[in-house]
Design a protein around this nucleic acid. Structure first.
Lengths: 248, 248
DNA sequence: GCGAATAGTAATGACGCATAACACTTGTGA
DNA sequence: TCACAAGTGTTATGCGTCATTACTATTCGC
């Protein structure tokens, strides 16, 4: 049961966070000032302290939100793809990741880049969480392919013993309910993530500036395809049309 | 002919830059304050203005230095590898890139991450330059393999027309003296860079925290190997020993 | 109408960039 | 040897911004 007051308060909190994000986008950095936020909202800075104890608390909230948003965005995009179409689902997940980062470069920097100047993370949790959630959809996609017996051998050489130990430890630590994949596939999955993350990072920070948007799209599809193929993920050429990358 | 004064001045400039980098490493961000630098050097802040007109000029110098350092580090590491051993050279280049980033995460953020809060880049040059130099060694390695006729077909599907146009334009713009590679190989080369950059980014920002250092090394070698193989680059298994990754 | 939630005003304290005025050092030429 | 000038550094200062607190006024639900 939420009272009217509580709803108003929640709305204000949302507005503060939304305004902070707008200012980040405008200013092009992850740096924010209470005074700016307040001015932009037609308020005064001290009023914000009714909602956030200090600047760090607001930043923490923004980071947590970014995690959630990226995670749900990717998951939703995957859910929209036909469950039968594994290639399509794979591309949907990768595209959603890319699209989110392109649309929200500041939030991307917030969770995957260097920490903000004055900010110190509350604990080790959130950072690890970022990695976990980002990987989750990819991993579960592989698990589903494995469940259908459609997983091929990845083209990696062999799984190193040290790596194997970590993979086993990680899979043991994850929810027992989650289906697991062979260690070599998990490693290939990490390769996929690296490739995806690398492409997206370079693109977002403008290092693919010598490519036209269309060329970048083509390179992206090629990157995803190559990642899937080398991971033993069931991929069906011809590749889906570009509209799958830009739409949805 | 450098006078004694000029040498002293140059030394001071170096010390300022070095101190700024130390503070960055200490503080864990790319944010720096003149007052901190001066205090750390046993000087007062205004004295720094004898050497740098303002904070942005210092930042620009640091960025340019970072470009140079990364470029020469990678080039030197490649030069130390046997020129005959293409696999070794490839791994040397990738390892140097990785090592530099791991040792200098702040400088990496400086050139490949989001801009520093108050800083505005002097012009479009440096950013583009970062991409160019980082790619240069990889590209020339492929060119050399091509010159020896050892370049296989990359496992990419086909080169998209839009991408092809950009690649041709870029190769035409580069030094005519530089040997070029087929468009499909250039594209594969971009894939290599993405994979390398992605791995290094994730590792440096702690998102591979669930892996032990040894496991990360193994994953890195596997990443490089996979990138080379899928690019048609002549790679010889068994992979070089791990010492090649950590040493040099 | 009462009281809690909320917002504004004003004030405080700290900090950072940048500049100006002044003082010391050092190399060099008369 | 001495004086000058360039170079270097310090103290003092102005200016602006920002986070945060204390206090006061207002609004709004119950």
């Amino acid at each position: 049961m939420t009272t009217r007051r509580e709803r108003a308060r929640a709305a204000t909190i949302d507005e503060i966070k939304e305004t902070a994000l707008s200012l980040m986008r405008e200013h092009g950095s992850t740096d924010i000032r209470f005074s700016d936020i307040a001015r932009s909202m037609g308020m005064t800075a001290p009023a914000l302290y009714r909602y956030f104890a200090d600047r760090d608390e607001l930043l923490t909230a923004l980071i947590v939100d970014a995690f959630d948003d990226l995670g749900t965005t990717v998951a939703e995009s995957r859910a929209r793809a036909s469950a039968d179409d594994l290639s399509g689902s794979f591309l949907a997940v990768a595209s959603a990741y890319r699209r989110w980062v392109n649309q929200e470069p500041q939030r991307f920097a917030l969770i995957f880049g260097m920490p903000v100047p004055g900010y110190v993370a509350p604990d080790e949790g959130p950072t690890t969480e970022a990695a976990r959630r980002a990987m989750a959809q990819l991993e579960s996609l592989f698990a589903e392919a494995a469940a259908r017996g459609m997983l091929g051998r990845p083209t990696i050489h062999e799984v190193d013993d040290a790596l194997l130990g970590c993979i086993i430890a990680k899979q043991a630590a994850s929810e027992p309910a989650e289906a697991t994949v062979p260690a070599e596939t998990f490693q290939a999955c990490l390769h996929c993530w690296s490739a995806l993350h690398g492409f997206v990072s370079l693109e977002t920070y403008g290092h693919f500036g010598f490519l036209t948007p269309e060329a970048r799209d083509a390179l992206f599809v090629s990157t995803v395809r190559l990642a899937a193929l080398s991971s033993g993920f069931p991929w069906s050429d011809p590749a889906p049309t570009l509209s799958m990358v830009t739409n949805t």
